[in-house]
């Protein structure tokens, strides 16, 4: 399906849905008393854009620790029920902290161990190419994940096989598990390194659906399209933004109410 940039009314509608999803995301993390909220907030805009622009897009969430953003996006599209969402991170749930296998067709693969998703998406895209299908496969990775060698194996393979229907979205929030990506294992300008393999690379504001959709229209006939999404970890909640602890910590009641207030007033 071809992508069309959102018109203004659609944009407003999507913005509203994203805000609702963000509130629900905060609520489910607060109620479940779990962390990982920072990396969820950095990629929520892109996931919501994908799921609200196309019908049943094939999305591999390689950064499985952002499972909440994936679940809430599917909830927003009516693919996951409110009752199911209430089970998030509890006993007897399908909605584990990282996506589980064989739950929904919208979640093709269990992810959570970084460095798997891009290879899986590459396999899907190669299969489609051999089947003469032209629908895209989207893969959302983290930026720290590019420290995994298997991710580069996948990029080399996807470029070699000219999988131009593979769209790689890198959530470049600059913060990883125990430091910033520049402190831990700096790759300098990631875009230049990926371009070095021949891929088409575009940088966008990862919190702007319009920018993302325009970038997704970029022709990439010789290999995958790589979109580096400049994002903010903990986007939209002042005390979470760019703070490493929100890779892990659950919210207190006071923090939750402040976060809700900030999102509602944004």
């Amino acid at each position: 399906m071809e992508t069309t940039p959102l018109s203004s009314p659609d944009r407003r509608s999507l913005d509203l849905k994203i805000r609702q999803a963000k509130l629900r995301l905060l609520k489910m993390h607060y109620e479940a008393k779990v962390g990982h909220i920072g990396g969820n907030l950095s990629c929520l805009d892109s996931l919501m854009t994908l799921f609200h622009t196309w019908t049943d897009p094939q999305v591999i969430l390689s950064k499985g620790h952002a499972a909440g953003a994936l679940y809430v996006s599917l909830w927003s599209c009516g693919k996951i029920s409110e009752d199911e969402l209430k089970t998030f991170h509890r006993n007897d749930t399908w909605l584990s902290g990282h996506p589980a296998p064989r739950f929904r067709t919208e979640i093709p693969f269990a992810t959570g161990s970084l460095g798997h998703g891009l290879s899986l998406a590459t396999g899907l895209a190669l299969g489609k190419k051999l089947q003469n299908q032209t629908t895209p496969t989207y893969c959302v990775t983290s930026d720290g994940e590019w420290q995994e060698g298997s991710t580069w194996e996948a990029l080399i393979f996807a470029q070699h096989h000219q999988l131009h229907h593979l769209k790689i979205l890198i959530d470049e929030n600059g913060v990883q598990g125990f430091g910033s990506t520049s402190e831990v294992a700096s790759m300098g300008e990631l875009d230049r390194k990926i371009r070095g393999f021949g891929a088409t690379v575009i940088e966008v504001d990862g919190h702007c659906p319009q920018d993302l959709l325009q970038a997704l229209q970029t022709p990439s006939r010789e290999g995958p399209l790589v979109i580096i999404m400049k994002t903010t970890k903990g986007k939209g909640v002042s005390f979470m933004e760019n703070q490493m602890e929100w890779h892990y910590l659950p919210m207190t009641e006071a923090q939750y109410h402040q976060a809700i207030q900030e999102v509602e007033s944004s």
């Binding site: 093709p108 693969f109 798997h116 290879s119 899986l120 998406a121 590459t122 396999g123 899907l124 895209a125 190669l126 299969g127 489609k128 089947q131 298997s150 996948a154 393979f157």
Partner: peptide
């Protein structure tokens, strides 16, 4: 992993 993706396809 590519094989897994192909099998899924």
């Amino acid at each position: 992993s590519v094989a897994a993706g192909l099998a899924h396809q």
